[in-house]
Nucleic acid binder design. Structure first.
Lengths: 341, 341
DNA sequence: CCTAAAAAAGATATCGTTGTCATTGTAGCA
DNA sequence: TGCTACAATGACAACGATATCTTTTTTAGG
């Protein structure tokens, strides 16, 4: 690391023979600058390799150009998609993304996040599930001097800014697809009970069965928590039963992988003995054998949108974005779900 | 979002009946403050819910408490581990992590990263492979006013700060393990040629075979690029051969998964017909069937260390950390590698 | 009790920008 | 020509902290 004198706006002003305010105008692309002056200034900026000091800017203008993303140990794929969407929204802007992990169960969550906001000097913050479900946290943030955008079910949108999937509808569509393939005995592996998405996925499943006049067999509803292990355990219970479903709706891909593993270890054949579906279209859905028929939510696009909401709130001049949006899911057909034999 | 007046250090000073400098001393835990005064000030800070303005601080003290991580589309698991290590290093400090994705092939990479640094106002930056292999970028960064820490092979450490795995040694250990199980015909799937880790893994493999006096069969060395598809294709080539290896060293887990998929689709049994090993211990290694015998590098710990290096450079007062460190890998034994039958 | 030294606290300049308002220059029009 | 608008530019304050230097208070020693 070299230690060098910093070039400031004053140096540029001197070099270009204008006032610092004019340089400032050029940097900020204000229009009341004569073309010829702008050229002069830009030349000096380039020549001196001037980069505006972010802190001075922020101090004066109250804009930090920093947006935080808070998450609680989600699926790694999910997190990665969220991030990549967020970064895409920031590309070609001056905004940057700051990360924070935060246990949704921690008691002083408000304090932790408050500290994060002031520490990093955030102008905006994006909450991902299950944090976006936390009413107390939302109350707290509402009183803070920051824009909040949620990646969440649209149900709790007392906030203005959010991007949401539609888990219920997606689960219904998937269930209908299972039914259409001739299955009547259909099981379900529940997700983590603290995620509202878990329940919505179940509602969708439930609704589809009702609509098709298929009774739900409670023995075929298995508890889970989105983890591979919980899928494995669900399979243990399932294969102990004398009367078994012919298809199993798993609330995410990891649990589906757990079920498949147990099946293999016990000489069951997937999908012949049991059709399986996942949810999320994580990387494993494609890489496992048989590859999973699953639901893909446009997580990346959702994250991008959530960030864009914030940016267009902070900078109303820039492109305007509708402030909330539901993103439809898509069913990805692969090998793990087949016709009832 | 509520719009409220900001509490400043002046407000606190007034409330506590001291000068702003004294408040500053308390915030910064300088010691020349009488206990009783400190109490008074702390009380006012709490009462007014004062949070120091980050930009003002940064402007005056030149410290932004922001550290960047740059990556180029790595494995999602890998990225996630890197992040979680980085965040752990920052927990209980005032530092925060800012993210940036950046194609290592882009021609103006120096400019992109330079802009990132000044835009976000970074004090430190961590490069992950393959960016940490990019000599031009390293040259550029050396001249900038920033601390650089590399997550990289120790070979290119003209930099002072790095955390590194030892891919060569790990690959040797894994190969030795394969040999110890009686395999003499051993294949290898190469990783992406632009990652120095790929070559190191191959050297390790090579060396172990040499040491054991086993000749390398060039027909069993397959090109790959760390992707699932490239593993699948390698398997295609492999199973076309009349003379085949009994074990296959895949340079990462995704490629191993690709090989397994092809094998299943073509009625080969893994590991009976072909033992397989992976590298990285990504999530799929555990979730796939058969689960993968693989190499785990302590990526999270490495990232944590890389960040700690930077922090202890910026803040020499805080805990001192040795400035570079090689992290040994560990072989995780699972189901995909068995004795030669 | 006095004095010197050390500890505690304060006054004020300063960091590098942008905001506000004032000033200058220029084009358009009667 | 003279006047009005309006565009272009500039001077200087302000943002909210920390740094430097000074002053006041306390402590210790004789």
């Amino acid at each position: 690391m070299a230690n060098m004198k910093n070039i400031t706006i004053t140096d540029v002003a001197k070099d270009a023979g204008v006032s610092i305010k004019t340089v400032s105008r050029v940097i900020n692309q204000e229009k009341e600058v004569a073309a010829i002056t702008r050229e002069k200034v830009l030349k000096s900026i380039k020549k001196l390799d001037f980069k505006p000091n972010k802190d001075a800017r922020g101090l004066r203008s109250k804009k930090s150009f920093l947006i935080g993303i808070v998450y609680d140990n989600p699926n790694k794929y999910y997190l990665s998609d969220i991030q990549s969407g967020a970064l895409k929204a920031c590309a070609d802007t001056n905004y940057n993304i700051v990360l924070q992990e935060c246990k949704y169960k921690s008691k002083d969550i408000n304090h932790v996040i408050g500290k994060f906001i002031s520490n990093a000097g955030l102008n905006g913050i994006v909450l991902t599930p299950p944090l976006s479900d936390n009413a107390k946290l939302l109350d707290y943030l509402e009183k803070q001097n920051i824009f909040v955008s949620l990646i969440a079910p649209p149900t709790l949108s007392k906030f203005e800014l959010w991007a949401s999937g539609n888990d219920e509808e997606a689960a219904m569509a998937m269930t209908n697809k299972i039914i259409a393939l001739g299955h009547k005995k259909i099981g379900f592996v529940y997700g983590h009970k603290d995620h509202s998405a878990s329940h919505q996925r179940y509602y969708g499943f439930h609704k589809a069965l009702m609509d098709a006049d298929i009774a739900i067999n409670q023995n075929w509803i298995f508890k889970g928590d989105f983890s591979f292990d919980s899928g494995y355990k669900a399979a243990q219970s399932l294969f102990k039963l004398k009367s078994r479903p012919s298809a199993l709706f798993c609330s995410n891909d990891s649990m589906a992988a757990g079920v498949i593993k147990y099946a293999y270890q016990n000489n069951k054949s997937i999908p012949k003995d049991l059709s399986i579906t996942g949810f999320d279209d994580s990387m494993i859905a494609e890489e496992i054998w048989p590859s999973l028929t699953t639901v893909r939510q446009p997580v990346e696009a959702m994250a991008k949108h959530a960030i864009e909401c914030i940016i267009s709130k902070i900078d109303p001049m820039s492109h305007k974005v509708p402030f909330s949006k539901v993103f439809p899911a898509e069913i990805i057909t692969r090998e793990s779900l087949i016709k009832k034999t």
